[in-house]
Amino acid sequence: MNQSELAQLIHRKRRKAQLSSLIVGASLLLLAATSVTVGWTNLSATDVLAVICGKVTGNSAWYSQLEPAMVAIIWDIRFPRILCAILVGCGLAVSGTVFQAILMNPLADSYTMGVSTGAAFGASFAIFCNLLGNVSLPITPFAFGGALLTLFAVLAIARVNGHVSSTNLIIAGIIVGCFLSAAISLIKSLAGEEVAAIVSWLIGSLSARGWPYVTFGFPLIIICYCFCHYFAEELNILSLGDQEARNLGIDSSKLRIALISCGALLTAVCVSISGIIGFVGLVVPHLLRMLVGSDNKLLIPLSALSGGLLLLAADTFARSLDNIELPVGVLTTLLGGPFFFYLFKTRNKSIQ
């Protein structure tokens, strides 16, 4: 392939990524607007628009004719939950993209690094202490702290002679993840009949997620996303291997630690908001990489939009069922597992 053909190929991929981002972004906005009206209480689009415009502008005249309960449902219950779904989906997908690029493994995600398990352990510990009745520990900060401590432990174990390699990160993540999984099982056993409180958090849900979760997650997720996107070109080079990165003047070890830390922070924020939600960070980047290629400059923003769209669609469906609300973490795993298996088998057939 000559340079002209290569340039045309790159141009086509960029056009495809831009078009895909436009379509996904428009779909996300449309779904977000529609999701506010979906639920056990029927709401009209006019009422939703009046409440949102009134709250944003601070003019209560927009929704003065509506009942206070209806205003609370729209602004205090459904709207922040929709924003949480978008933020969590965006964060998980971007972190999965970063982990897969750094570890050079299309099956890598936050579980590979043990970060999700660390967040689960922190939350389980807080819930267990609360069940004892002696203290009242906040679950979200403990989940966040558990994820960060897990990251520090993984990096400490993976560092050999001052250097952190992709292989060492995977091995360290598996070691720490297995240890924390056993610790979570121990806590669940000690909880006895109260284990349901721990299990309900571990399976992942966006129920009762209000504005405090949005204000906590929004700035951190946006900052981490901007950091990952800023270093997308360096991430492309890092995906080629340490030797190639060093030849181009990039300190692969420091960059890997910085990006891994950023991806882990994204996961920590998301898991501390929603609990464990699987397959979003695994399926979305893998599927998009098959569609638009491996250029992280294009892949990261498209993954962010697609992750938000996927999780919002799953959560909207989960809370629209009659007489029951299915935890969104269960739904994404039930749907994502077979779908990813199909993609995996299809790709292997195409390679053969």
Rank of each mutant, 00 (worst) to 15 (best):
H163I: 13
I86G: 02
I157Q: 07
N168E: 11
A108F: 09
S185R: 00
A153W: 11
A123C: 06
L169C: 08
A158G: 09
I171A: 13
I175E: 13
V164F: 13
L132C: 15
Q100R: 06
N168F: 07
Y111P: 00
P106V: 06
S136R: 13
G162D: 08
G114M: 03
R159Y: 10
V94E: 03
L103S: 02
C84W: 04
A147N: 00
L92E: 05
M113C: 04
L132N: 14
C178Y: 15
I171R: 09
T112D: 04
N168L: 09
F99K: 02
A120W: 03
G133Q: 13
I86Y: 04
I171P: 00
M113P: 00
L149Q: 00
F179E: 03
I174P: 04
T97A: 12
R159K: 15
I127F: 09
S166A: 14
T117W: 09
A101Y: 08
Y111Q: 08
L87C: 07
T167K: 13
G96T: 05
C178M: 15
L131N: 06
A85S: 14
S110E: 04
S136K: 10
S116T: 10
A119P: 00
F142T: 01
A108N: 06
N130P: 02
G145S: 12
F125R: 01
L137S: 09
T117S: 08
G177S: 10
L155D: 06
I184P: 01
V98W: 03
I175T: 15
A156S: 15
I157D: 04
K188M: 14
H163C: 00
T150V: 09
G91T: 09
P138C: 08
F121A: 01
A172E: 06
L151G: 06
A93Q: 01
G118N: 05
D109S: 14
T140V: 11
V98N: 08
V98T: 10
I86H: 02
I127M: 09
A101V: 12
V176A: 12
A126G: 10
S136F: 14
C90M: 15
S185L: 09
F152S: 15
T117H: 03
F121M: 06
I157K: 05
L87I: 11
N105R: 12
S116H: 00
F125A: 08
C129T: 11
V154T: 13
S181W: 04
G146K: 02
F99E: 01
I175M: 15
I175K: 09
S95H: 02
A101W: 08
A147Q: 02
G192C: 01
L92R: 09
M104R: 15
A120N: 11
V98I: 15
G192A: 11
A85W: 03
G114D: 04
C84H: 04
L148M: 14
S124Q: 08
G91W: 03
D109N: 13
L148I: 15
A191P: 00
I86S: 03
G89S: 11
L151S: 05
G192F: 12
P141A: 09
G162S: 11
S124C: 11
S181C: 07
